[in-house]
Design a protein around this nucleic acid. Sequence first.
RNA 1: AACGGAAAGUAGAU
Length: 336
Amino acid sequence: VFVGSSLIDMYAKCKRLDDAHRIFNRLPKRNVVTWSALIAAYAQRGCAEEALQLFKQMQQEGMQPNQVTFVSLLKACSGIAAQDRGKWIHDQIIEKGLEVDLYIGSTLVDLYAKCGDFKDAQVLFDRLPRRDIATWSALIAGYAKHGYGHEALQLFQQMAQNGLVPDRVTFICALQSCSSIAAHEHGKQIHMQIIKNGFESDLRIGSSLIDMYAKCGSLENACVVFDRSTKRNVVTWSAMIAGCALHSNYSLALRFFEDMQRVGLEPNCVTYLCLLSACSHAGLVEEGCVYFKMMREDHGLAPTLVHYNSMADLLGRAGFVNEAEDLVECLPFRPD
RNA sequence: AACGGAAAGUAGAU
């Protein structure tokens, strides 16, 4: 049973869910870990229906779920914002008296927050006997995701008052909260805390900082963060190009686009989207068309629906309404 | 042997 469960986990972590399920079907003996491993695998890959289906099958066979099983099931529900299904799982958790579990509590907060039900999320949060940094982050991220930047930042401060030290995830959530409401001063303060906590060289924190400053109106500070950074990857550069686009600074965007290639980095789909956005904001139709071609011809990147959308935006903004219409009609995708 | 907070950081329109 141990070997079988490990095999399922291994195949799942190699993204080979079919093989994981095949192993599962062939096992002569299964315990709660075996079931939970496969349910977790589906939940993590966003296959909520499969996870819930397995749970029903598990119950039919009389196998009792444990904390881990429930956490994975809740995650499956929150992944597709299925509050009704989540509530159904929640009821069973209450029946078993498992709501007090730290992981289950945090995942429940995450579920309600992701679904935008802040009333239930808050009530639950308040009655949990144990909370850690992930519990707080789940609520903060939920508020930030739904555009409640002020509430998110307030919680972030409250968390510190409760003696909890933010980690990378919490900092990124806090920075995103600042971005969403252009809270420049809060952003600067959080930046100082990041330095104090030694996270400034983190790649993800770095691009979040660039994004935050640009969205808070300071392309200058975004450039300062970029210049001071010691590690940069394609996301760092793309965040910078996105910032230039937001500030309608096409020439600077182009300079970053060229420099990133000079240091040996390949632009990806998002990089091109940032660049197209820069062209669009600057009204540079010809340049935009050049880059649209270049992404396939020079970098082997097939334009996706969002790239076509961006081109339609570019043409439409510049007054080429007919051309934009033609583009939408010839779309190799279903338009959204 | 299985589990929680980041769409794990960057992009369009509104």
